[in-house]
Nucleic acid binder design. Structure first.
Lengths: 107, 107
DNA sequence: TATTCATTTCCATGATAATGGAAGCATGGA
DNA sequence: TCCATGCTTCCATTATCATGGAAATGAATA
């Protein structure tokens, strides 16, 4: 529950949502911080702050590679969040089923 | 985009997330405000404030019925939100597909 | 019309978050 | 060891949000 609130709070911010979606689209390999800053036109300090928030919420994973730090989306958390939101929906009335995204690793 | 941020911000709060999930589980018929307040142990003013936020974010729908106001989850918005989050994920790499929930009306 | 009941608005208080320049900290090349 | 580069932390400022008691609104019944 608190995990879900943290994740939602992390995404509930224009800049962070943009960052996250960019990383979702980039896939598992991720993008180095500097490139993100350039691509999105965000000052380093600001980007760093938001990446920290996203990482803290476990929506994003950081991986160091020489002098670069690659950030990538954490699909497991995203999927868990979506499941949480739709849990027991409609008192069990048959309805569309929520399938997770990009979970080759977790299924 | 702003719609998504508003929806996420609305959900990024313990009390509101609880309210929303309760309504998701209650299904289309909804729950009157007073009953929600009792069930969740939230003061009227506080509940009203949060319901307003959720309604403003179009995550929740209000329907008056005599003296009661029934609140219910807006599944269309929820589904749109989840699609937005996973849009173009993994640069098109084949992966699980996100299916929407409870959308008999929209599909 | 007066009354009751469900819900909302008002408002003051306290708390938390966003921003970005400047300084600091690592890593790797010369 | 010195320097350049990639990224982060520090910090002060500004803005936004959560809470709940009390008063107000608005709908049904007598």
């Amino acid at each position: 529950m608190n995990i879900a609130v943290k994740a939602l709070a992390a995404l509930a911010q224009e800049t962070r949502l943009t960052i996250f979606r960019t990383l979702v689209q980039a896939g598992e390999s991720g993008v180095p911080a500097g490139q993100l800053a350039k691509e999105l036109g965000i000052p380093n300090a600001t980007l760093s702050f938001h990446l920290k928030e996203l990482t803290h919420a476990e929506l994003v994973i950081a991986r160091q590679e020489s002098r670069f730090i690659y950030y990538s989306a954490n699909f497991a958390t995203m999927n868990a969040l979506m499941s949480y939101l739709t849990e027991n929906c409609c008192t069990g009335t048959p309805c569309g089923i929520v399938k997770v995204c990009c979970d080759e690793k977790n299924s």
